[in-house]
Design a protein around this nucleic acid. Structure first.
Lengths: 177, 177
DNA sequence: AACCCAGGTTCAATAAGAAAACCAACTGAC
DNA sequence: GTCAGTTGGTTTTCTTATTGAACCTGGGTT
């Protein structure tokens, strides 16, 4: 399969992977969330070769994840900033960080700690259901076809519904449309 | 930079990316969460070449994300099942799906809908702070060095702490140790 | 015996990535 | 004015990874 065909697949994972499913791209995005913005800074921190970095940044700009904005004139210089679409990748990056913290940390513990400035505490990211607020587990989720489904190829086996509780919904910044 | 050096980096993103930071690997994991378990089924659904699929499955087994368990004898055949370490990737996969749903869905809408069997509703995954329960936004998170930090190279600029509220912590299945 | 199945491996051709050098537009120091 | 320095790249060559097709193994079926 060619990678440009991937974004046409009727699967949100495939479409997302066509944008960020590359090792260097994910590391570039990590640095974006750490406020890195310039070519030379990415290059120095990541150790990536310059041609690869240039091609990845170009692609992220093309996909509207980053925007190239001038930070000075004469000589005209640009920096790369996360767009809203890019900022929305934060849960993915945090989920990746958390998994690494739990499963890949060395004996010394985590490399970084995250402090939530709202509550002031060191925290872990937790993924919950927007409707009932409970933490999500794969076995409690039943997947079925949406309006954008193409073929029944990607459908899973059916899973019986369990007990049901009630809670107030959590207003996500970006809920299902 | 060589990819085997990546897992030695003092960064949880780099370490996680050394395991799952590959396009095919992420698609394989998507299918794992859709209860796909066998070589031929992965191959048919993904359209990946057989040598790549074999190499990715081998690596996921080596990294204890998947386990190869026999489902019959004579002829002896194995299937690939998510371990607990693999199941813990669920928030990453859900975050990827959700971003694709929001930013990459076609005109027809989402390919798949997720129903939470606990509450019975179609939901979106929301990432919250384990301590105060508020949805996370990148600008409200201050990163600082943890015990496993190596060099100060990967540190971000400081961000002032905002207002502080109080809430009860959410017990994540896997909190910070 | 002849053929099918699941789960791979082997091999040649092609695409992508790495390393090092080079380029261009401008600055500021001398 | 020229000479080195800075930033943000491109070019070139070499090495590695991926693709596509075919083949293999250890069984079972008719």
């Amino acid at each position: 399969m060619r990678w440009n065909k991937l974004e046409d697949e009727a699967c949100s994972v495939a479409r997302t992977v066509s944008v960020i499913g590359d090792r260097w791209t994910l590391l570039i995005l990590r640095d974006c969330f750490l406020r890195v913005r310039r070519f030379e800074e990415f290059q120095a921190r990541l150790g990536v070769t310059r041609p690869i970095l240039a091609s990845r940044l170009r692609k992220l700009v093309k996909d509207f994840v980053l925007a190239k904005v001038p930070y000075q004139e004469r000589p005209l210089r640009y920096e790369y900033r996360l767009t809203q679409k890019g900022l929305d990748l934060y849960p993915i990056v945090m989920a990746i960080v958390h998994w690494g913290d739990i499963h890949m940390a060395g004996k010394k513990g985590r490399p970084l700690l995250h402090q939530h400035t709202n509550c002031g505490k060191t925290f872990d990211p937790v993924m919950i259901c927007s409707e009932c607020g409970e933490p999500l587990s794969p076995k409690q989720v039943h997947v079925h076809r949406g309006p954008g489904a193409a073929s029944p190829r990607h459908m899973p086996a059916d899973v019986p519904a369990g007990d049901r509780k009630q809670r107030r919904p959590v207003r996500s910044s970006r809920a299902h449309p």
